[in-house]
Design a protein around this nucleic acid. Sequence first.
DNA 1: CAGAGGATGATAGTCATTCTCAAAACTCTG
DNA 2: CAGAGTTTTGAGAATGACTATCATCCTCTG
Lengths: 142, 142
Amino acid sequence: MRERIVGRLARGDQRLTSSREALVAVLAVSDRPLTIPEIGAADGGLAVSSIYRNLTMLEEVGVVHRVVTASGDFAHYELTEDLTEHHHHHLVCSGCGSVEDFEASSQLEDSVRDAARRIARRSGFRIDRHLIDLIGLCPNCA
Amino acid sequence: MRERIVGRLARGDQRLTSSREALVAVLAVSDRPLTIPEIGAADGGLAVSSIYRNLTMLEEVGVVHRVVTASGDFAHYELTEDLTEHHHHHLVCSGCGSVEDFEASSQLEDSVRDAARRIARRSGFRIDRHLIDLIGLCPNCA
DNA sequence: CAGAGGATGATAGTCATTCTCAAAACTCTG
DNA sequence: CAGAGTTTTGAGAATGACTATCATCCTCTG
Ligand SMILES: [Zn+2]
Ligand SMILES: [Zn+2]
Ligand SMILES: [Zn+2]
Ligand SMILES: [Zn+2]
């Protein structure tokens, strides 16, 4: 895993500094996508501007994925699926903005892939990934 | 349709002014969600602040739905599905941010509803709606 | 017509995110 | 280890989508 991260960084002429390793470690330990404030709190002494700069760069080289749910709210970050090798989707609370992971049934995944193939043929889009969000209110907000 | 819009506005103590009717008309004619600049261009002489204010209000009373794809990019607006009576999903270009509509197969819709039921039971979330985006590059950007 | 309540639009404010740049921390050679 | 060259960091300024403000304008009712 560390291996592959170093590899992807190298492909973009970037190094795995201790700040970046700390960011990745925080995300690796969480079972859900985290916001910048959450990451900052977990990591401790890393400047906000550095968190943003490094996460943006880590996204460009394919180590990290940015999850946007509502505008004007903090984005959430997680490791990319091909690093964790765990394809999943999101359960989003429209009250507090929190995000949790869930795994879809293989029937659901198959249906989405079918749809993607069909739509790609018809529309001329090149489809790279899909996104399935279930949106509602978490126990706290309900 | 105009009927139902007036009804929803009234429920929120709001009237259907000519500005609001113009906004709704622009959205009703489009086959895809539009950004604020697009709506402004289509409508002509309506102040940007009024477009924002009215769309926000129309969203609160359930006439309009705001579609957020990337942060720092314009949101897109469309009429709510229970006004158009046309449940659909989105094909999003990660290059230029454009959004198109597509209709999912009933098999896909069934699978999502199943997943929602199962996840709701397990997690305690109250799930209100689902979102399926296919993300890739449009013919222009590819 | 007067007056009250709401709608409009120009502009100022907010806030997540990005940019800037000087200082600090590496890296590499000798 | 020194010291030059390069990269990264951090504090604060800048950006830009969006929201709040408020004086003015409309639209009703009586
Ligand atoms: Zn919540
Ligand atoms: Zn999936
Ligand atoms: Zn495009
Ligand atoms: Zn659906």
